[in-house]
Design a protein around this nucleic acid. Structure first.
Length: 103
DNA sequence: ATTCTCACA
DNA sequence: TGTGAGAA
């Protein structure tokens, strides 16, 4: 079931203005997230930001945390830890799968 | 018409 | 955090 190339969540599609519009946030805010390495979208050859659907989900997540009063540096750390947690969970799953084969 | 960076309040 | 100037 890989009808992929049409909605690839990592495809850099949306401009800064489009994302700001659909998320109802300021363009300057998105640029700051990039500055602080919280959400860093890819760039076109001309240097313009292009957000993927994934990037946009992350921005929403970040915005929820920021609304709760967290600083951008704190949020950057949290995202880092969340990625690490996700990675460890998949490793745990494969480890469990191997154990199951031994039974 | 849009987006970029940078500087300032 | 938001705004505006000036370049691209």
């Amino acid at each position: 079931m890989a009808h992929l190339p049409f909605h690839d969540e990592h495809a850099p599609l949306y401009s800064l203005g489009q994302v700001a519009e659909m998320l109802q946030v300021q363009q300057a805010y998105l640029r700051r997230l990039d500055q602080h390495d919280v959400v860093s979208p890819s760039r076109t050859t001309g240097g313009q930001r292009r957000y993927s659907q994934r990037d946009i989900m992350t921005v929403q997540h970040v915005t929820r945390m920021a609304d709760q009063g967290m600083t951008l540096t704190a949020i950057r750390r949290i995202l880092e830890l969340e990625r690490e947690l996700a990675e460890l969970r998949t490793e745990l799953d494969t480890a469990r799968a191997r154990l199951a084969e031994l039974e």
